[in-house]
Design a protein around this nucleic acid. Structure first.
Length: 275
DNA sequence: CGGTACGCCTGGCGGC
DNA sequence: TGCCGCCAGGCGTACC
C-alpha cells in the first residue's frame, strides 16, 4: 500500500494514539511477519514503554524503553489500528500489542508481506536494509548536485533507479509515475542519460510532490488507511497513475500504460519521450 | 559489484 | 453465476 506520504501519515497518527503506553503482552498470530524468533520478540517487548515513533524512508521505527527499536515495514497492505481490547479481532490482524490502558495496537495485513524486527536503538546502520537507504526527500537532505552525480552512476532506467530507494527514499509506483510525468521524463530513460537540467527539475518535483501528498494525508487507491482508519485525499491530485486512456492534462494525448521494471507504468507518450 | 527475475500472500476484477 | 487468470502502492534474495 504505502509510499512515504502514507507511512508518514500513519506515523503521525500513531504518535497521537499510543505514545507513552506500556506493552503488557504481544500476540503473534502469523509468525512470518516477525523477522527472528517470535517468542524472543514478545519477551523483549513485554513491559516496555513506547516512547515515540520515527520514520526512515518507508520504515517505521517504534522507539521503546531500554534501547529497543521495532523496525516495521508495511510493504503492500500493512496497517495499524488502535482498538479497545474487547472488540473482536479483524480477519487480517496478525500481530496484537496489548497496552496497559486496555487498548490494543493491531497490525493488519491482508497479503502478509509486512515485516517487523527488533534492533538496538542507535545501531540502525548495522542493518543492511536500513544502511543502504538513500537520503530523505527534503530540501536539507536531498541536494541537486549529489542527486545528479548518483544518477550518473546508474546504468538503468530512471523509474527503476528511483524505486530502489538507494538514491532517495520514499517514492513508490504511484508517485514515481507522477513525478516523471511532471518532469516530462520517460520512465525508461537511462538514469545516466539525464542532463543536469532534467535532474534539477525532477529533484524539485520529487520534493514538492511528496510534501504535497503528506499534507493531503496520503493517497488512497485501493485499501490504504491511516491509524484513525481515515483514507488520504491525494488520489484527487493524481495526473497519470491509473489514468490510462484518459487525456494527458498537459497535451490531451491519451495516457498509456506499459510495464517497466515489472510494474504497471503510466505516462504520456507525447510529453515523455526516451532520449 | 550492479543488474534483473522471482517469491512472498490474499482478494478483486474482467473475460469467458 | 462460476471459474480462471491477471493484477495490485514493496521488498529481499537468488542468480547472471
Amino acid at each position: 500500500m504505502p509510499e512515504l506520504p502514507e507511512v508518514e501519515t500513519v506515523r503521525r497518527g500513531l504518535n497521537k494514539l499510543v505514545l507513552g503506553q506500556v506493552v503488557t503482552d504481544v500476540n503473534v498470530v502469523f509468525e512470518n511477519i516477525i523477522v527472528g524468533d517470535p517468542q524472543e520478540f514478545v519477551a523483549q517487548l513485554k513491559g516496555k514503554t513506547l516512547e515515540k515513533i520515527d520514520r526512515r524512508g518507508k520504515y517505521l521505527l517504534f522507539r521503546f524503553s531500554d534501547g529497543i527499536t521495532m523496525v516495521s515495514h508495511l510493504r503492500m497492505e500493512g496497517k495499524y489500528f488502535v482498538k479497545d481490547g474487547q472488540e473482536p479481532l479483524e480477519k487480517h490482524s496478525h500481530i496484537i500489542f496489548k497496552l496497559a490502558n486496555g487498548k490494543e495496537l493491531r497490525y493488519n495485513d491482508v497479503r502478509k508481506f509486512g515485516r517487523m524486527e527488533l534492533i538496538a536503538t542507535g545501531h540502525e546502520n548495522e542493518f543492511k536494509n536500513l544502511a543502504k537507504l538513500g537520503v530523505e526527500p527534503t530540501p536539507t537532505a536531498f541536494k541537486v548536485d549529489e542527486f545528479y552525480q548518483a544518477l550518473q552512476k546508474k546504468n538503468k532506467g530512471i523509474k527503476s533507479a528511483l524505486l530502489d530507494q538507494t538514491i532517495v527514499v520514499g517514492l513508490g509506483n504511484i508517485y514515481v509515475d507522477e513525478v516523471l510525468w511532471m518532469s516530462q521524463i520517460h520512465p525508461e530513460t537511462k538514469a545516466n542519460h539525464l542532463t543536469l537540467a532534467e535532474a534539477t527539475v525532477l529533484h524539485d518535483n520529487i520534493i514538492a510532490e511528496l510534501a504535497e501528498a503528506v499534507k493531503a494525508g496520503g493517497t488512497t487507491v485501493r485499501s490504504y488507511a491511516d491509524a484513525f482508519q481515515n483514507s488520504g485525499s491525494f488520489q484527487f491530485a493524481l495526473q497519470v497513475y491509473g489514468k490510462q486512456g484518459e487525456p494527458c492534462p498537459r497535451c490531451r494525448t491519451p495516457i498509456e500504460k506499459i510495464r517497466v521494471a515489472q510494474r504497471g507504468t503510466h505516462f504520456c507518450p507525447q510529453c515523455q519521450q526516451v532520449k
